[in-house]
Design a protein around this nucleic acid. Structure first.
Length: 514
RNA sequence: GGCCUUGUAGUCAAGCGGCUAAGACGUCGCCCUCUCACGGCGAAGGCCCGGGUUCGAUUCCCGGCAAGGUCACCA
């Protein structure tokens, strides 16, 4: 190692913050923030914030072939909307930047070489790109398949592993293409610790000499992770359980470098069903999809938090938490080891709860665009409609279909006037509508209270239950069996003129009937 | 196939050697009620299987079984 290199490494070490919890969310820019990603980001954020630490954003873009246009924007937008504010990252800077891996290219190469010098990695000149593709099990037959598989995974020693180091170095420096591989011991076992899975031990001979530095000079995911996490002072590595299998190799890397091993926190996957993870491929919703489908950010976050984590102790039964509250109660011990199936029905429940707990003003605000999608007539008060809707809405997008009778009276069947529970039929309904029409025309003030008084008074006079009066009028005024809100509200919103017009139409329909 | 992990009702889940095995969603029933919804009350439904250890196992151990992950110059 040259003096210059020593100085470089020392400087890198000096930048590392110590003495505080630091976590990082490190997505690759594939342009899709699925629910599992969001949950990982949330937990990562919470672990840092619970401890008063730093939440760092790092972009893992070392795969030049998988860049997706606009992908990082989607991620930034999601994090921002959810309130998962990062303390350091490509956009806000920080003490251990750059925070984009392709901008750290030179760093990895230096560290990879350091590892070679330390004897934990080696240059490999094999041209294996083609043969080394992962074997496809699906093309193998049932019988011979097992043998093929066995052969495909058979472990052979890489000839370059035993090359003379000086010779290998000379070849590499002469410009011959190479990759750098990790030198895994053949003997023994490696144990690593995970905060939720505990200690996991694997035999070293089940580990392969993975590539650390690719032919193009960029690091592989696994290597970049270790180097960056160390150089950025990450104390808790939170990630999906699909990386569990590579954790032993990480430990060997940390040990090879002589670095302190961070706390691992692996999270089980969010599933679509018993055997499939949520995925873009299968059309499972991303955070944005859910938003567009009418779910509130707070509800999504709350639900997702509980998918794989649950509060313990006195708050074990509690299930409603704001982000703020989560940062106070979140603990790693509550993270579940088994996969959780995403249940849209339960999300719906959370969404409904959040909607009901909004102030009427706030709900009117978020509901207005959806209301106006269906109700163009400005004469119908969006606020009044919102008031009817708040207790009847689980998801925002279900609002417009409920309102389709406001602008125009739909076609409906005279059968609708017959309802057993309300004790109505065509005859009774016609009588009610005719009586009501006259009285409503004479009603001095057209408001909910007056309307209610008029109708209940009518029922009393006629010696029938309220429903007998209200059912027919509601049908006449809406043309629908099911409406959000009762007649009184509907008439109030529709206004005198329109309500009376519709009642007259109802009378006409029933008269034609008999 | 090797290695690793997981396994409490349809779903999310408490539980951490002794309980009638919490709670929530969903489902069903009843009440409230001008329809629907909200709200209230109630019901059905579970420890993957087989051995151990123990006075006693959902809980500890072993073995099955099932599911998932991983074995890329992708992340």
């Amino acid at each position: 190692m040259t003096e210059e290199e020593k100085k470089y490494f020392a400087e890198m070490e000096e930048r590392i913050p110590h003495g505080r919890v630091r976590t990082r969310f490190a997505p690759s820019p594939t342009g899709y923030m699925h629910v599992g990603n969001l949950r990982t980001a949330l937990y990562t954020y919470l672990i840092a914030k619970r401890a008063g630490g730093d939440f760092i954003f790092r972009l893992e873009d070392t795969d030049q072939s998988r860049q997706v246009e606009g992908a990082t924007e989607v991620i930034y937008k999601t994090l921002k909307e959810c309130g998962l504010k990062h303390d350091e990252g490509p956009d806000v800077g920080g003490p251990v930047g750059p925070y984009i891996q392709t901008e750290r290219r030179g760093i990895y190469k230096k560290y990879a070489k350091m590892l070679v010098e330390k004897g934990h990695a080696y240059y490999c000149f094999c041209n294996k790109t083609e043969e080394e593709k992962s074997p496809d099990a699906d093309e193998a037959g049932a019988e011979s398949g097992a043998d093929d598989l066995k052969a495909a995974f058979a472990k052979e020693d890489d000839p370059c592993r035993s090359l003379d180091p000086a010779e290998a170095l000379r070849r590499a420096e002469s410009g011959e293409p190479y990759v750098i591989r990790q030198k895994i011991p053949h003997e023994g076992t490696t144990t690593f610790h995970d905060a939720s899975y505990g200690d996991i031990t694997v035999p070293n001979d089940s580990l392969d000499d993975q590539v650390l530095l690719k032919r193009d000079g960029l690091p592989t995911y696994n290597f970049a992770n270790v180097v960056d996490d160390h150089l950025m002072g990450i104390t808790h590595v939170v990630r999906g359980s699909e990386y569990l299998a590579s954790a032993p190799k990480y430990n060997l890397l940390y040990e090879g470098f002589g670095w302190e091993i961070p706390e691992y926190v692996h999270c089980s996957p969010v599933m679509r069903d018993q055997q499939h993870k949520m995925s873009k491929r299968h059309g499972d919703p991303s955070y944005e999809d859910l938003r567009d489908a009418g779910y509130l950010t707070e509800a999504i976050l709350n639900y997702v938090a509980l998918l794989g984590w649950s509060p313990r102790g006195e708050i074990a039964e509690r299930e409603f938490f704001t982000l703020e509250e989560l940062t106070e109660v979140f603990d790693i011990a509550g993270i579940s080891k088994s996969p959780a199936i995403f249940d849209i029905e339960k999300l719906k429940y959370f969404n409904a709860q959040y909607i009901r707990n909004m102030t009427p003003e706030r709900f009117a605000e978020v509901a207005r665009p959806y209301i106006r999608q269906a109700v163009r007539n400005e004469g119908c008060s969006a606020d009044k409609i919102a008031a009817l809707l708040q207790q009847r809405t689980e998801v925002l997008t279900e609002i417009p279909p409920k309102l389709d009778f406001f602008d125009e009276l739909p076609e409906y069947d005279a059968e609708c006037y017959t309802n057993k529970k309300s004790k109505t039929n065509s005859e009774v309904s016609l009588n009610v509508l005719e009586t009501a029409l006259g009285r409503l025309e004479a009603l001095p003030s057209w408001d909910a209270d007056s309307l209610h008084g008029l109708m209940t008074g009518m029922a009393e006079e006629m010696g029938v239950k309220n429903a007998t009066v209200m059912w027919p009028i509601r049908i006449a005024v809406s043309g629908r069996l099911v409406t959000p809100g009762g007649v009184v509200e509907l008439c109030d919103i529709l206004g005198r003129e329109e309500s009376l017009r519709r009642i007259r139409a109802g009378i006409e329909k029933l008269s034609a009937e008999s």
